[in-house]
Amino acid sequence: MSGTARIRQARAAEFVARMVLGAMAASVVAVALFVLGYIVFHGIGAIDWTFLTQIPKDRGREGGIFPVIVGTVYTTLGTAALTLPIGILAGVYLSEYAPRNYTTRAIRLAITNMAGVPSIVYGLFGLAAFVLAAGFGRSILAAALTLTCMTLPVVITATEEALRQVPQDLRQASLALGATRLRTIYRVVLPAAAPGIITGSILGLARAAGETAPILFTGAVFQMRRTPDGPLSQFMALPYHIYAQVTSVPGWNPTLVWGTALVLVAGISAASIAAGIWRSAQRRKVTW
């Protein structure tokens, strides 16, 4: 084969590869757009002031989803309040303090395993541990604790990963100036890792907000007249509301159910997008 022919063939292969890879990447975007478009198309008709501010009527076939939104917001905030301090501090310990020994390896193994446990198993565990044994009953607290167990590995791993990205040079510089390890962590390492920690945490919490299985046995109810009045109150929640409508309400109203899905997806997307914007703003400031 002559040199020109070989070059021409290589160029053709390059072109084909680019097309195939591009098509695969584009197909992901297509699926995402289709799912999102479908939800918006079917659900947007439900979204109005009444839907967002009224309680459900006729077992959810009419009226709004206000207590449902409030329930999800409460459980998610409760989960955040429990998960973030424990998860971030555990991540800091593993990244900055933990010696390389069997105990540390056992902790890491436990975290990996926690991440692999199916969410319905967490639900069952939450029922046994928090609802029954601890005596919290079916409540926001029991559900938030259950969701915390599920979200912790995500936050711990995100924190550890973000801390690992902080160059060792910076820690050395701080220690060499006579700073203690603790001061080095909270003045230099944590601020530098904050964007990664916050993004990872928000993704973990967004997943918790959308879960049905962990709250199924631990506190979510089909219908409540009032919004929850405390951590030991039962609650309605967006994902469970969708599930309950479709499985137990004959003649359920598809527009309202799609509307509920749209509110859930919009809330989660808003949190992710906010995290993304904040992160890229931070990145402009901090580059290694």
Partner: peptide
């Protein structure tokens, strides 16, 4: 000891903060 014996490293390693805060860190 490290307040009495400072160190400058091989690669410049300023903290991700302002010039003032870098110098004022110690």
């Amino acid at each position: 000891l490290r307040m009495r014996v400072g160190q400058v490293f091989q690669r410049p390693n300023p903290f991700p903060m302002s010039i003032f805060d870098n110098v004022a860190y110690g």
